[in-house]
Structures are given as C-alpha cells and as structure tokens.
Design a protein around this nucleic acid. Structure first.
Length: 311
DNA sequence: AATATCGGAACATAAACTAG
DNA sequence: TAGTTTATGTTCCGATATTT
C-alpha cells in the first residue's frame, strides 16, 4: 500500500507550479519542483541572463543520498515512493562540522569590489580561483601526484616535490598538517589521534581521498564507508529492496583493507606485505608470495615488449 | 528502456576571522 | 559583536554502466 507523501509544515509542493514543472531529475522520474521559497533550478530569473541557482534540500533521505539523486522535503520522498521503498525513507544524519580548524588571515575585500558582501559575489568556493591560491586541504589532498602534470595538482596549482603547496600560504596554517590524510596510511603508527579523530572521517585511502570519493564507491557493501560511521545501518533496512537484492558483491570491489577485517587491524594494507618482510614472519607464505609476484612480473614483462628493465 | 553507479560541480552553512 | 570569509560537508546533475 502506498502512503501519501507527508509534507512537513510549510511545505506546499503540490502547487500548480509544481505540477506543471515536474522535474525529470531522476531518469524520468517525475519530481516535485521545489518546496517553499525555493526557486526552480536552471531557469533564468526574469531580467537577468543568469540561471537560477540550484537548490538543495536540507536533508536528503538515505535512499536518495545513496543514489545521489534528487530528494525532497517530503517523507517519504517521491523517489522512494516511486520505488516502493517509502518505508526506508528517512532523513540522513549530518555529520557534525569540525571545530577548531585554524585558518590563515583573511583577505579583506575592497569596498569598491561592488557587491562583495552578497554570497553570489564572493569568490567561488571549492575551486580556488587562480588569483587566490589559498591553502585548501582538499586541494592538498588532490595535490598528490596522481597523474597530474608535474608540479601541479588537478587544479593546476603548484605543489612542491613533497606534494605540498609551494605557495607560502601553506605555511600560514601549521595546524593543518594534522589533517594530512594521505600520511595516515603511510604511517601505520599514526593512529589517527588528534584532529582526525573528530568527525570520524579519517581512514581515507591514500589516493582519491577527496570527500567525494569517499561518498561513492568505497562503500558498496555499506561496511567500510566513512559515511556509515555516522549513519549506522539504517540503510540496511529490510525494505531497502534494491540494495538488498543486489548480488552481494560490490560493483567496485572494495579492497580487503576496508572490510570488516580491516576494522580490527586498520593498517593491514600497509602492514601486510611489509610487515611480513620485515619481521620475518612465516616464511613459507612470504616465499610463495614472492614467487607469485615474480611470476606476475615476468608475465607482465612478457606482455610489454618495451625496453623495461627487469627485476 | 529502466535503473544503478559515481565523478564532480554546485550548494549550504558552521565556524574562524576581523573591523568597528 | 555583527559582518565577512573560508572550509567543510551535502546534494544532486549528468555521464556512463548495467540490468531487464
């Protein structure tokens, strides 16, 4: 039995406006337009050529959140209703914001800059504009040399040989190094105390440690997701048919580190091979592992007829 | 064709900072 | 302390992949 969507107080979605503007946000799934006071996305506001800003609900339901789809203020949201998972349509919980994050001195804007005080007029967020190479932990993470041009991160910003910003802005914030996510995995002993403890968003994989990367692929199995820490298992609801019915294997296989086994020893990945080698643990296993490795190497070398040096 | 997945831009806003 | 600036976390667009 399908329940009627619940519209919270003040919500007036089923308006003529809404009905005539069903959004095709979710693959043809008709969506109510926007709740009170929310402008329709992607329509130029009258008089200006600027497209209206996209509006977001304050809190998407867990299902929409997982699917990265448009949600609604109503519970159950139209999408859940459509897919018959209305009973699992619950608000996701938001992670608490970090506190105590120090910043460098602000750049004060000139008054003459015009409407600098309006949010729209401010500098774009997230993406640093070229003229303000601010230190940004996100970019710092992104600045790890994974396939970006030499000395540049993905935004074309320079970093030095150690993957840090060459700009002195970086020096302004001696506090941030505590958040250097990549290091965590590299240093098994760094047990995530200090800043990383808060908010529960440590344990980034070294690469693609960006917030978004953590949002998506890493948690197909719902287990190792950094996100899940704040949202314990309301996802794994019996009614969540879509996900439950999926063949249990994740589409993007999660490396063993992120599975539950990793929970007991968070650093398996690093400690795994290295530890065996260094502490001389069971040699048989090591031997066979090495043998397999060399086999693989040989095979790879055979395939690539290029002048690569052998091991 | 429908649905799922997911990268990443856009958005919202809490919190640090600063001028008065 | 109000206003400004910025960092952080969330939403969801849109492209692509997979399933039916």
């Amino acid at each position: 039995m399908q329940q009627m969507p619940y519209y919270p107080p003040g919500y007036q979605a089923p308006s003529p406006y809404a009905s005539s503007h069903l959004l095709q946000a979710d693959n043809g799934l008709p969506q109510l337009a926007h709740p009170v006071g929310v402008s329709e996305p992607n329509t130029p506001s009258p008089g200006t050529a600027q497209p209206a800003k996209r509006k977001q609900v304050k809190n998407a339901c867990t299902n929409c959140q997982k699917a990265c789809k448009k949600c609604d203020e109503a519970r159950p949201c139209p999408r859940c209703v459509k897919y018959g998972i209305a009973n699992t349509c619950v608000n996701s919980t938001r992670k608490e914001r970090k506190k105590g994050v120090k910043r460098g001195p602000y750049k004060r804007r000139q008054k003459g800059d015009g409407e600098a005080s309006t949010p729209e007029a401010r500098t774009p967020r997230r993406k640093n504009s070229p003229e303000q190479p601010q230190y940004d932990p996100q970019n710092m993470r992104a600045s790890m040399p994974f396939g970006y041009p030499n000395g540049l991160n993905q935004y074309g910003q320079p970093y030095d040989a150690y993957g840090q910003y060459a700009s002195q802005q970086y020096m302004v914030n001696p506090v941030y190094p505590g958040m250097s996510y990549p290091v965590q995995q590299m240093v098994p002993g760094a047990d995530g105390h200090g800043q990383n403890q808060q908010g529960g968003q440590h344990q980034y994989a070294t690469h693609s440690a960006m917030p978004h990367a953590q949002q998506h692929s890493p948690y197909n199995g719902y287990q190792g997701s950094p996100h899940q820490q704040s949202r314990p298992l309301q996802q794994v609801h019996p009614g969540d048919v879509k996900d439950e019915q999926k063949p249990h294997q994740p589409l993007t296989p999660v490396p063993s580190t992120s599975s539950s086994s990793a929970a007991s020893s968070p650093h398996v990945n690093v400690a795994g091979v290295g530890a065996n080698v260094s502490n001389g643990g069971d040699n048989d296993e090591e031997g066979s592992r090495l043998a397999r490795l060399s086999q693989l190497c040989r095979a790879a070398l055979d395939q690539s007829d290029g002048p690569t040096e052998s091991t």
